[in-house]
Design a protein around this nucleic acid. Structure first.
Lengths: 187, 187
DNA sequence: TCAGGTGATGTCAGCAACTGTCATCAGGAC
DNA sequence: GTCCTGATGACAGTTGCTGACATCACCTGA
């Protein structure tokens, strides 16, 4: 243990979501967050690059899991299938935290600056997926297009999952969204 | 005419792209831009919401044209076809300014903060397209998925257009990208 | 056991993005 | 000619974010 309460980072992330939900993102200053978390503003910026990033701490883990799932998918599977399964698998990370995911999504939906960051993270997910597909030998532009289709399908699946009945799984919602995409693009 | 040089807005936009290209986005202050354009910093912020927005002045027009193209597409055309044609049509706006588009794309590619904004604009294009499709009677989730497919296809087409031979048209590149997407999703 | 290294934090000064407010001034309407 | 309007200037203030240096609990090795 350090000389202060442990897990300053975790506290900052929790407090930030709390305050963004209470007063809104713009009405919350970094000083507010730091104060409630019991640290200084400077410490906030040591843990998070900026005021938005504090809501996206788990995105690295998600990306890692996505890439792993793509790499370990059965050989010979069509790229779009690989992508569908990989996003469904990575999404399993969120299954147990549906409530947290919903609160977070609500905060993000309320602010364009946060939507920007989310879009950037999703694009990052897409780039990582593209690379992982290329590593499997999938040529361009199939790799990039399949990855982007995966991002879109993940987004739709996530929306349905957080706003739907608690019983349905995110994985199932993603697979369902892929079916819908096939229908639309094929027509 | 006002009491100052006319078209302060246009001058600011041109100068900003110039400086972002010369020194980079972060190394350019709003004061730099305002000074070279012959106005004050305050005037910059009267014309553009923030330092990034100055690069996205035409996005409203593009969105408008896209929506019009969707609304006026032949009845009975499958949504994905409507979208493909509409994005190709809207893209025609850029055809004559390929060089400008390339310079702009280079600047954006060099800075994550600008990429964020571009992603937000693209997402806005997607939302507008979704709405326009719904207005034609296309149900969900087909409307949203077709629109997002359009955004992806536009992005790939644009990339190929700016980096390819000057002879190929953006519209053709977009149509080509849609063909590729079909192949990937159908497999 | 203690000297020094290490990592996380505090403190403080400072820049630049952005906003609110009020003053200024050319041109058009009446 | 007076009033109104729209665009701009001037200026003060808040906040996000960074750099530089100090502090201090803990660990490590002699």
């Amino acid at each position: 243990m350090g000389r202060w309460e442990p897990d300053a980072r975790g506290r900052l992330a929790r407090v930030a979501l709390e305050l963004y939900a209470e007063r809104g993102f713009e009405q919350t200053t970094v000083e507010d967050i730091a104060e409630r978390a019991g640290v200084t503003e400077r410490t906030f910026f040591r843990h998070f690059a900026d005021k938005r990033e504090v809501l996206f701490d788990g995105s690295g883990t998600l990306e890692h899991r996505l890439v792993d799932a793509i790499a370990s998918a059965p050989a010979g599977l069509p790229p779009i299938e690989v992508i569908g399964r990989a996003f469904a698998d990575a999404g399993a990370m969120l299954e147990e935290r549906r409530d947290h995911a919903r609160r977070r999504a609500t905060v993000i939906a309320a602010n364009p600056a946060l939507q920007e960051r989310e879009l950037l993270k999703m694009a990052g997910l897409g780039s990582a997926a593209t690379e992982a597909l290329r590593a499997r030998g999938v040529p361009d532009p199939a790799a990039a297009l399949a990855a982007q289709a995966g991002v879109a399908v993940f987004g739709l699946g996530f929306e349905r999952w957080v706003s739907g009945a608690p019983s349905t799984s995110l994985a199932a919602a993603i697979e369902g969204a892929l079916v819908d995409l096939r229908a639309v693009v094929a027509s």
